[in-house]
Simulated assay, not measured.
Amino acid sequence: MEQSVGSLQELALKRKERLKALKTRQLQGRDDDEEEEPEKKKALSEEVEEKHREIKLRNYTPEDEELKDRQVPKAKPASVEEKVRDQLEAANPEPIIEEVDLANLAPRKPDWDLKRDVAKKLERLERRTQRAIAELIRDRLRGSEEELAEAVGAVGVTEGDSD
């Protein structure tokens, strides 16, 4: 770790040389920039001249024909009544929902999604159940008609015997 005084001086000299080289490079870079700057300044000044604002004449009535094109037409004051009417309409918004559906406000039961998913299948089963019940009723009616016919026939036979 200990270095001799001579080696430290050599390191300092090398560092000074590097710093000088760095300064010369920076100065050369500035010289190059200074040579380019007049060209940049010219381009910027041309852009500024192109971007100048076009004159708009609001209160001045020009006599020159070219300047008459730049004259802005007279502004008409807006009607205060219309502005007030617009503000009043904006202050009274129309109600978005006219009726409140209590079913939407009430909390849902935990099985609401299951009922929703099964509803279509239950509709089909309900129709089939109604058909089956109707068919069973028809069968019973047919059976009761036959029994009724037999009962009527039996009653007719017993009446015929008594004559």
Rank of each mutant, 00 (worst) to 15 (best):
E39S: 04
D163G: 13
S162P: 07
Q130H: 14
R70T: 11
K109S: 05
R25G: 09
V152I: 09
K109D: 15
V80T: 03
V152P: 02
D69T: 07
A78W: 06
E146D: 04
L27G: 03
K20I: 15
R131M: 13
Q26L: 10
E10D: 11
E123L: 02
S144D: 10
N92P: 04
R116P: 01
E145W: 00
K41T: 06
L102G: 09
R70P: 06
N59V: 08
L19H: 04
K14C: 03
E159F: 15
K51N: 11
L19D: 02
E65S: 12
L19R: 03
G143V: 05
G29D: 06
E35C: 15
Q9F: 02
R108M: 11
V152D: 09
E81H: 06
A90I: 12
V48Q: 01
E2M: 06
K68Y: 02
E145V: 00
E2P: 01
L102W: 07
E37K: 13
D64P: 08
A43W: 14
S4V: 02
A78G: 01
G29P: 10
D31P: 06
E99H: 15
G143E: 11
P62M: 14
D32L: 15
P38E: 01
L136P: 03
E36M: 10
E2I: 05
A134M: 00
E54Y: 14
E63A: 13
S79L: 14
K40S: 00
A119T: 07
V5K: 01
L67T: 05
R128W: 08
H52M: 15
R131E: 14
R15W: 04
K74L: 08
P107I: 00
G143Q: 12
R25D: 05
E147A: 07
D117Q: 15
M1R: 03
D31Y: 13
R18I: 04
T129F: 13
V100G: 08
D86W: 07
E135G: 05
L148H: 13
E37S: 08
A106Q: 07
V157W: 10
G143D: 12
A75D: 11
R142C: 05
V118D: 09
L141M: 00
R128D: 15
A43Y: 04
E54C: 13
V118Y: 03
I97D: 15
R142N: 01
A106P: 01
E150F: 08
Q9S: 09
P93G: 01
P73K: 00
